[in-house]
Design a protein around this nucleic acid. Structure first.
Lengths: 250, 250
DNA sequence: CGCTTACTTGAGTCTGGTCAAACGGGGTGG
DNA sequence: CCACCCCGTTTGACCAGACTCAAGTAAGCG
């Protein structure tokens, strides 16, 4: 696992790739300057690296600039539950910054570049740029509503519905983030990740995936899920979809 | 279902019962004045009333002054998932205020008195009192970390562990809110609520409750759960407990 | 070439679901 | 005052969705 903290920047804020995404909100000049000053550097990590660990106190906050990752919690005996995924523009470590200690871990699914911020400066953000403070609450609130939906899924949907929901959800987010192309986007996850997200065993997850593959709603590739019919999946899960037009980020 | 919006106030902010709770943070004088100005009135609702409905746009935000309630989501065919409970000092409707439309509903478990705020004035809160804005993010972030734990529970714990966790969790929150007394506090929930929280059927929930009752960890009363050994329950669930010292509120 | 990771598949088991019925308490209309 | 009903709880019988165990294949890598 290689961690690289760069002082020279591949993505100075003024050229931040997030600014070019159509459904990511724009910054005012002053805000952009403030955020640029807030930024401490960039962190590059390999696939499979742990960005933040449960129980730790990390002095940093991160925004995802490229790549995929996931948040999870463990029980003492190793049972794992993935609670959500992180991608372009998502903020990592806010919960730890506010409550002191991380209550979950974050691991990458692909190589990832992160924008690094200083925890300690958070309060000055609220003081000097109330709109950015509002945006942070917005992000936390959005996470909350995603978790509500996941909980509904794991608690009350059948295995088939859960799987359909998850894949539809992920492809929806990837589309909103503008990081997938064309008609059959591919998600960089393994069946083990799917199982640990849905609260199912690996074997049963595999059998459920086969059924959806037989129905031509998706195809399973090496280390990834190729989504053939996202709408069909959403429908099967009775899921309304994320209706999200413009989102903030830091 | 009776809804009563009172203009005369039983709880003027200066005498807010929340100010007397030891683990609820104190307000500065200016903040208190601001919040008092932010307050629009009080709402009194019966047990079983719906405070906020999924899909609606309510111009208000609420803080719980007395009583218990729960947040839930429904699937089209009526399957219900309770995602969390609300009690003293919890903010209801923030998600809807930020994202426009409520993505979940809130129903009461007991008569409830709520403090009513105006959605539209939220931004001025961030501008005039950055610390309060920070506190809102804190609250959203805490909700997020509770949901993470619930997800872990529903996804990866066994029926017995889930039940133990839920009861330990609720009694912990009630204690932190200072709304339960003595050694065997009683939670105002039915077995149907428990089932819909844990993602189990009512029948199986009942059988699991019987087992814990046989082990003398709890006793089931009329419409409620009397908790005999909260620590034993937490241990059985392998749950660490909420370590929360001081919390904010509005 | 051997090792590891990811995916598959079959067989047998078990946790938890469904169906059905019954009980007790509280409220209500006759 | 009583009969009835509804709600919440309880229990038994049976069923099934999901789990565990086990084994095997294919691809990628040092």
């Amino acid at each position: 696992m290689a961690y690289t903290l760069q002082s020279e920047r591949r993505f100075p804020c003024q050229l931040c790739p997030l600014l070019r995404q159509p459904n990511y909100r724009k910054f005012g000049k002053k805000e952009l300057e403030f955020v640029a000053g807030f930024k401490r550097g960039e962190l590059t990590v390999d696939r499979g690296a742990t960005v933040l660990g449960e129980g730790t106190r990390n002095p940093h906050l991160y925004t995802v600039l490229t790549g995929w990752g996931f948040r999870y919690k463990l029980l003492a005996d190793g049972r794992r539950q993935i609670v959500n995924y992180v991608l372009l523009g998502d903020l990592i470590g806010l919960q730890g910054s506010l409550m002191g200690e991380m209550q979950h871990s974050v691991e990458t699914l692909s190589p990832m570049i992160l924008c690094v911020f200083e925890r300690g400066q958070l309060m000055s953000l609220y003081r000097e740029h109330p709109e950015l403070g509002y945006d942070l609450t917005w992000l936390a609130s959005r996470e909350e509503s995603i978790l509500d939906e996941h909980l509904l899924s794991v608690g009350r949907r059948t295995a088939m519905e859960r799987l359909s929901y998850l894949i539809a959800f992920l492809v929806d987010r990837a589309r909103a983030a503008g990081i997938v192309d064309g008609s059959s986007p591919t998600l960089p996850i393994t069946q083990t990740h799917v199982a640990d997200t849905l609260g199912l065993s690996l074997v049963h997850t595999n059998k459920t995936i086969r059924k959806l593959a037989d129905r031509k709603l998706l195809r399973w590739a090496e280390r990834g899920c190729e989504v053939i019919d996202g709408d069909g999946l959403a429908q099967l899960a009775r899921w309304e979809g994320n209706r999200e037009w413009i989102r903030p980020f830091l």
